[in-house]
Structures are given as structure tokens and as C-alpha cells.
Design a protein around this nucleic acid. Structure first.
Length: 588
DNA sequence: AAACACGGCGCG
DNA sequence: AAAGCGCGCCGTGTTT
């Protein structure tokens, strides 16, 4: 039986649904534009009446719910009703619909789209903001909220009627949209489960970092002779480039001398050895680390669990993002070029009785570059398990590479790998030479030879760029259209690779979720996706089966018929925390 | 007090 | 003309 489409929107006291906030009202709108606003607060009779209505709405299974950011409304509703609903209800998401046609749009908020696409005035939001004055929306006068909520469901229904027919009309779009809808309940279970913090370790680390930051700041003040704030780029500029007269290495987009770490401070440290540089590097790293970890503590629930907001359709390329907190950028203990790394991954631990598994796609970026380049020699190489960077090293350095010592080989291999990534993205001969660590004219020759050997990779960006200039978009292997700014056509290569990798991981997640459900009864669960990897929490009691289970996970992750290159994953296990990983062999 | 732009920085 | 791109979050400093 066809379901009746109904727009649905919830109002909550804030954004942290798994810790402090909750839903206090909701609204609906039918296809004829008839709206209904109901409060879940106030007197007992009203609460009882609305709760019953809400429960019936989701129990009847006769509606298709149209939402803008469905994951949020579904989470709020599940929390309120105290039961799972996401898996069995039919949903639409106008934020995801909008992304499919407007991936470059800077602000896909409901209000903005309603105004731009349907001329619906945004004054209702201003009225609510004014009425609440810093408090949450449950404190606004109900009359003002009624108007606001009515308009929001109308906006949602209008957007749906605008976008959805265009999706329905195109089989590829239908598949992509369905994939996005399938990802929503799976993502909800990750957010709900949460990632556990070791709070004792957090406190210790914060204390140490704060003390170190204070020390570094004092050292800097002694060197400078005034109270320079190392967090102020302006003050650091004055110290380094006016008072100490150090050379300006690069400028910011507004033309000011830059003081950033990788390209400026580390270079200045190398060149001048000035002690001020060291204290700035220390202070910035330690103080940033302290406030980041404090924010983790602040966001954790009573059990020490972090429940991030995983936005499944955030980036212009179709990638996901993560916030409150962002668990995609938790710093590692050691990273090339970082003299003062913060070991933040040590404070993330598996739940008691569990271990972590990290499953990441092996070399997916290079594999996709090769796939899109149509360079048959490299496609064949991947299919026999060869290493494209090894081949690149032989092309660049020939016998000099083959007969080098193991130590020297490593250096040449690393350089070749860098150049091998630079070239398909359109690097100039100068940049290739720089990557290889050889003079410019020599680089030109090597690149010429590389072009004769592997023309596909060299012409990849020029080809994509020409296409972007004429069409304004790239199309991934899954048929997703990604608009690319025409005045920066060369970034099309990046959009294509990043967007395709995102499509792979997004399709993998529901498969892995279902597989783990079947194989472990849901005892092993996905905690988080991070662009080309997923983190799984796995019960120790089932470790004897882990090899087999992870083989199954691998199978479903690499099963994509649209590619004529093979995909593969690397598996690591963390018994202690997110930092300490060891290779986990699943092969025979 | 709140909103914004900017520079800076972590990850993939 | 070009080794690239994508995020979220922090603190500073200014504007409203």
C-alpha cells in the first residue's frame, strides 16, 4: 500500500539529544499543506494527548515521513517514545535531496532553502531568536513557536515536492538516494552507542598539558620581554617579523605574514634556531590539546560515552562529517613534522569486555586514481597484486632504485610515492622535481619519461579539468553528480576521488552493520566511520571467531562490481585504546 | 551578549 | 596557472 507523505519536524531544547536535551514539540504537514502543531510539555492532559498522537503516528506504518535532517528528528522521537522506530519507518530527507542537486551550496539549512527556492520569509526564525534571548526554544511563547513550526513543515514539504520528482525520474539518483536513506538508521545506532572515554586519563592529560602550556608561555614572555600571547597571530607576527626581524616565508590570504606551523615556524626553526619559535610551537600544541580534551569531557554522558553527531551528507564531495565532538580529527601520538603531538587517541577506549578493530581501505586514493585514469598497465598491475609506487620508483630512478641499499630504497620509494600522487593531481615538473628531491631540469626529464610510460595518470587532471570547464561537474562511478567550481576546474580530480571513496564507505556501512548483526547478534558494532575506515567495537568473548567475522566484514566492504580494479582492506586491533594498534591477520 | 571573519590546526 | 581537496573547532579581534 502506498504511504501517505507527511512532513515532520521536531523541536528540542538543544542539539545534544543523547545527553542533556530533549524534544518538547513537533509539527506535521500533509501534501495539501494542512499543518498540525503539538506540544509535548505543559499540563498533564496535553502531554498525554500529544504523546499518544505521536506514538500512533509512528506505529501506524501508513506514512512516509519527510524531514530536513531526518537523523535528528528520528533520534529526538526515539528518545521521547523510548523505542526504536528508524529501522521500520519510511523516510525522506530534504537536506540530502538538496545536496544531490546543490552540493556546492554554502548553506543548505531549511530556512535558507525555503527562502531561496520558494520565497518563504525567514522572519519567523528572527522572532523566535528574539523571544528566547539566549534560552532554548522551549522558553519561547507558544504563539511564536506555532508560527515557526508551521512554516518549517511547510518548507520541508515544499522542498520535497521540488526535489523528489527529479530523483524518482532517474534510476541512478534513485539508487544514490536510497543508499543515503539506508545509511541513516545505521548511523543513528553508532551515535547512540557512543565511543568511551577514559576520564581519569583525560583529567591527567589536561592537567599536564595546561601546566606545560603555562611554562611555554612564560618562557616566551621572558624571551620577548613583553606579555605576548602565542594564540594571537597578530602578536606573534609583531614579535617574529617586526621585533626579531625574521624572514617572512609566506603570507595569509589577507596579505599578512603567516605564522603557521608546517610551512613557517618549522622552517624558521630550522633556519634561525631562534628559541622563541620553540616556545610558540609548544604553547600552541599544548593549549589546543588541553581545550580539545576538556571539550570531550564536557560532551561525554554520565557513563563517559561520547555520542557525536555524524552528518552523513555534509561535504561538497558527498563525504560525511562529524561534530560535537569531531571524532574524525582526534590527534595521534606521532605524526611526521609534528614536534609536540598530543596523544589524544590514548583516552579513547573500548567498553569493558571489548576490543576495537580498525578496518581501512588499503590505498584507496591511488586505486581510484588508477581506475579513473584508465591506464591499463596500472589496472593490470593492481589486479595481480602489484604496487604502483614500486613501479613509479623504477620509472623515476631505474637501476639506481633497484640496486640501492634497503635504507636508500626506502627514501627513494617515499619520494616516488609523493611524486606519484602529485602527478595525477596535475603537479608541474618543478613540483615533481621537488617531490623527488632532484633539480628542476632533471625533474622535467623524469616526468617526460613517466609520461611515456604511464600517460593515463599524467593526462588525468587535464582531461577532468576540460570536462569541468564544459559541463560544470564530475560524475562518480556510482552516478553521483558533483558540481565543481568552474573557475577551479582542476579540483574536479579531487572531487571525483573523494566523492567515489565516500560512496564506497557509505555503501559499506549498512552492509557491515547487517553482517555484524547476523554474525554476532549485534554484540559487535560499528562505532564510527572515518572517510576510508570504520572502527568496530567487538566483544572479547567472541575473539575466537574474530578472524572469520572480519573476513566476512572484508567481503562485504570490497564487493563493488562497478570497478575493474580490486579493493582491499587492512585490519588492525586495539585491545587497550585507539592509539595502540596491532596488525590483525585475517588471510590464511 | 551574540555574531562574524580570520588564522591556525587536527584528521582523512 | 595549479600536488590537491574536504571537514569542525579553537581563540582572537572586531562589529552589532
Amino acid at each position: 500500500m502506498p504511504k501517505k507523505e507527511i512532513a515532520y519536524d521536531t523541536e528540542t531544547t538543544g542539539l545534544l539529544l543523547h545527553t542533556r536535551d530533549s524534544m518538547f514539540s513537533y509539527s506535521t504537514c500533509d501534501p495539501q499543506g494542512k499543518t498540525d502543531v503539538r506540544r509535548l510539555d505543559g499540563n498533564y492532559l496535553r502531554v498525554r494527548e500529544s504523546s499518544k498522537h505521536l506514538d500512533n503516528l509512528f506505529s501506524s506504518h501508513s506514512y512516509a515521513f519527510v524531514m530536513h535532517n531526518a537523523k535528528f528528528d528520528l533520534t529526538a522521537t526515539e528518545k521521547f517514545l523510548g523505542k526504536k522506530i528508524a529501522e521500520d519507518c519510511t523516510i525522506h530527507d530534504t537536506a540530502i535531496q538538496a545536496h544531490m542537486f546543490m552540493n556546492l551550496h554554502p548553506n543548505r539549512r531549511l530556512k535558507a532553502l525555503g527562502w531561496e527556492l520558494a520565497g518563504i520569509d525567514m522572519d519567523d526564525e528572527a522572532a523566535v531568536k528574539k523571544a528566547t534571548r539566549g534560552g532554548d526554544y522551549s522558553t519561547a511563547p507558544e504563539g511564536i513557536m506555532d508560527e515557526y513550526q508551521e512554516r518549517d513543515v511547510i518548507r520541508t514539504m515544499v522542498l520535497h515536492r521540488l526535489f523528489y520528482p527529479r530523483i524518482k525520474a532517474n534510476p541512478k539518483f534513485r539508487e544514490i538516494y536510497q543508499m543515503e536513506m539506508d545509511l541513516i538508521p545505521v548511523t543513528m545506532r553508532m551515535e547512540e552507542r557512543g565511543f568511551m572515554l577514559h576520564r581519569g586519563r583525560c583529567h591527567k592529560l589536561v592537567e599536564w598539558l595546561q601546566a606545560e602550556a603555562v611554562k611555554a608561555r612564560r618562557e616566551l614572555e621572558d624571551i620577548a620581554g613583553w606579555k605576548v600571547n602565542p594564540d594571537s597571530a597578530n602578536q606573534v607576527r609583531r614579535l617574529l617579523f617586526v621585533e626579531l626581524k625574521l624572514p617572512i616565508i609566506k603570507t595569509t590570504k589577507t596579505g599578512m605574514p603567516s605564522t603557521q606551523k608546517n610551512e613557517v615556524l618549522l622552517e624558521l626553526r630550522e633556519r634561525t634556531k631562534h628559541p622563541a619559535i620553540e616556545t610558540i610551537l609548544k604553547f600552541r600544541s599544548f593549549s589546543r590539546g588541553a581545550s580539545t580534551i576538556k571539550s570531550y569531557l564536557d560532551l561525554a554522558d554520565a557513563d563517559g560515552l561520547l555520542h557525536p553527531d555524524i552528518n552523513t551528507c555534509a561535504a561538497k564531495t558527498g563525504r560525511e562529517s562529524c561534530s560535537r565532538p569531531n571524532l574524525e580529527n582526534v590527534s595521534k601520538s606521532a605524526v611526521l613534522l609534528n614536534p609536540y603531538p598530543i596523544p589524544a587517541r590514548k583516552i579513547f577506549i573500548p567498553r569493558p569486555g571489548h576490543v576495537l578493530f580498525f578496518i581501512d581501505y588499503a590505498g584507496i586514493e591511488m586505486r581510484l586514481l588508477i581506475y579513473y585514469s584508465r591506464e591499463q598497465r596500472l589496472i593490470d598491475l593492481l589486479n595481480v597484486g602489484g604496487n604502483p609506487h614500486e613501479l613509479a620508483a623504477e620509472i623515476f630512478f631505474g637501476d639506481k632504485y633497484r640496486s640501492a641499499s634497503a635504507r636508500r630504497k626506502k627514501v627513494l620509494y617515499g619520494a616516488s610515492k609523493n611524486a606519484n600522487f602529485a602527478i595525477p593531481y596535475g603537479a608541474s615538473a618543478e613540483k615533481v622535481a621537488e617531490a623527488l628531491g632532484i633539480p628542476g631540469d632533471e625533474g622535467r626529464k623524469r616526468l617526460e619519461y613517466y609520461r611515456r610510460e604511464l600517460p593515463g595518470l599524467v593526462s588525468l587532471t587535464p582531461k577532468i579539468s576540460a570536462r569541468v570547464k564544459s559541463e560544470g561537474f564530475v560524475e562518480t562511478a556510482f552516478g553521483r553528480i558533483l558540481k565543481v567550481p568552474r573557475n577551479k576546474a582542476y579540483i574536479g580530480t579531487n572531487y571525483l576521488i573523494q566523492g567515489t571513496a565516500a560512496g564506497i564507505l557509505k555503501r559499506a556501512q549498512p552492509r557491515v552493520h547487517r553482517y555484524l548483526e547476523k554474525a554476532t547478534g549485534g554484540d559487535a558494532r560499528i562505532l564510527l566511520p572515518i572517510h576510508d575506515e570504520i572502527i568496530i567495537e567487538y566483544p572479547r568473548s567472541m575473539l575466537k571467531d574474530a578472524k572469520e567475522v572480519l573476513c566476512g566484514v572484508r567481503e562485504v566492504m570490497i564487493d563493488f562490481e562497478q570497478f575493474d580494479i580490486p579493493l582491499d582492506v587492512d585490519v588492525e586491533m586495539g585491545t587497550f585504546d585507539w592509539e595502540h594498534k596491532e596488525t590483525f591477520k585475517i588471510g590464511d
